[in-house]
Each structure stands twice: as C-alpha cells, then as structure tokens.
C-alpha cells in the first residue's frame, strides 16, 4: 500500500501548472488536498509520473462573494474552510451542509471543494450540490480559460469536462433568492460513508400565492453523474408542497431513476430510498422557505 514512484512539483502560478499538465512527455495529475487521489495512489489504482501540487498557487486560495453576488471558491480552498465561512453559511447553506456530509473532519481539513468536484465520484456530495446550486466551473488550459455549466461539467464516473491538460481553477455559485429553502439528505450506512443515494433540493416560494415558484431536485448515487429530475421538479412547481405534490414527486423519482445494483444496495433499494429522501428533503426545504 505505497504509491509507485512519481515526481512532484509545486508551481506558484496557474500558467506554470497548466504548462506542466500540457507537457506530453510525462503523465501528470493535479493534487491539492489529496483526499481522493492519495488513496488511489496508495492502492496503485493511479500511477501518474508527475504530481502538480496547486496548493502553493496564491491566486487559487480565494473565497469571496463578488460584486454580482456570486460565491467564488478557488481550487486551493479546503472544504473545512468553506463550510466554516459565514458568507457560505448565510448565502449558500446547502453547500455548507453538503460539505459537512463529506467523510470526517480529518478529511475535510485537507480536501478541497474543487478537488472533490474535479474528481467526480458519483456518490460524492459536492457534485449534486453544485448541480442543485447551478454552479459554474472555470477551467484553464493551454487553449485559454472557459466556463462550463454544472449541466455540462459532469461527464461520467470520475470524468468531467476538465481535460488532462486543463485545471479547474474556480467554482462559482450564483446567488440564491432570499426566500429559498434547501435540504441535503443522504442515505448512508454510517456517518461519513459515501452515500448509497442522496438528494439536494432547492425550493423557491412565491410571495403572492405561497406556492412553489421554482424547484431544483438533484440526486447523487443514482447514476454515473448527478441526476437533475425535472419530472419531480414539475410535480412541485405551482403546488403548495403538500402531501399530494410530494407523492407525485416521489412517484417521479420511482419511475424515472435508474440506479444500478452494487454490493452496497440493489437498484430497487436505492430507488425506494431516493423517493423517501426526496419527500423528507422537500418537506425540510419548504419549512426553510
């Protein structure tokens, strides 16, 4: 359980990091907190020739709310710092809650927000939270910088829109309306485990009618990518988030989700769990509106 040999370098600018990643001579991997990569190195599931440590790049250490009200989190920001930040807790409580579900405090003290997103384990918390919060991803590479929406960022298990010669430098969370409610629920065997299935819900209440104006429902652990379930959202929008609407949303989850079997749970168990979690999450989110 020791990594195979590799070289290591800690550049001090994004430009240097990208040049190292673009070098075709050596297969390079980005490391920040290492809480996903180092287990894979230890088990030799990953055998890069070069690790590019981005935690010494000052321009990636930012966490702030910009003039347009967007939360911007740089690639070197650790999860514990983001979850403890009052701007995050006040403006994006779903993000703070999702982070609290990641592993254990000892993991979150090292792991980064962007690292978990770029790693993209489909059972992980941050991908579904990012999709529910309509996040945007800023990616820099030899061909310049581009911004990718959450819908287009997650490609498949352990695969994202970030190419091998590119670096995810920042994730941007747009502001949420003040009257939104949220919930993040997971079905896990033990606290800190990867979720068997999970759901992130954002509801907006219409001030006039008191009904659901907008809904975002995203499941994790139900497919190789986080699943936004518009059928469940449609069942909620315009409703009073009452029993009937919740039953319709849960029905949509049962009908539309196609999770797979694995040693942890059958597909049927995951689907049932997802439907129950959805009802619980919608109830909580509506109470918080």
């Amino acid at each position: 359980m020791k990594p195979s040999p590799f070289d290591y370098t800690a550049p001090s600018t994004v430009g240097e990091a990208v040049a190292l990643l673009a070098d075709e001579e050596r297969e390079a991997k980005v490391v920040a907190g290492g809480q996903s990569l180092i287990p894979m190195l230890n088990m030799r599931l990953a055998r890069p020739e070069l690790l590019v440590d981005i935690t010494r790049i000052p321009e990636l250490g930012h966490l702030y709310v910009d003039e347009a009200g967007n939360l911007r989190i740089g690639a070197a920001v650790r999860q514990a710092r983001a979850a403890a930040d009052t701007a995050v807790q006040d403006g994006w409580p779903l993000l703070a809650a999702a982070i609290e579900h990641i592993g254990h405090p000892q993991i979150r003290n090292r792991g980064t927000v962007c690292g978990s997103l770029a790693h993209h384990d489909p059972a992980a918390e941050l991908p579904s939270a990012a999709l529910a919060l309509d996040a945007r991803f800023v990616i820099t590479g030899p061909r310049g910088t581009r911004t990718v929406t959450a819908e287009n960022f997650f490609v498949a298990t352990f695969s994202t829109a970030v190419e091998a010669d590119e670096l995810l430098t920042e994730v941007v969370f747009p502001p949420l309306p003040a009257d939104h409610g949220w919930a993040f629920e997971e079905l896990t065997r033990r606290h800190g485990d990867f979720a068997t299935v999970g759901v992130a819900v954002v509801l907006e209440r219409s001030a006039g009618t008191g009904t659901v104006r907008a809904a975002r429902v995203v499941f994790s652990g139900a497919a190789p990518v986080p699943v936004r379930l518009s059928a469940a959202e449609d069942a909620l929008v315009g409703s009073d988030a009452g029993e009937q609407a919740l039953a319709a949303a849960a029905g949509a989850a049962l009908a539309r989700l196609t999770p797979s079997d694995d040693i942890h749970a059958t597909a049927e168990y995951r689907r049932e769990g997802a439907a129950h979690l959805l009802v619980r999450a919608c109830t909580t989110a509506w109470e918080r509106c």
């Binding site: 809480q35 180092i38 287990p39 230890n42 440590d53 935690t55 003290n109």
Partner: peptide
C-alpha cells in the same frame, strides 16, 4: 495535528 488541525497522515504526502 498539521497546523493544529487533525489530518490523516496516510493521505498526506510528506513533500506537501
């Protein structure tokens, strides 16, 4: 404890 925070040393590279 690394800089006063508990971390897993098996998931931390010495070089970092």
């Amino acid at each position: 404890l690394v800089d006063d925070e508990p971390v897993r040393t098996c998931l931390t590279l010495a070089v970092q």
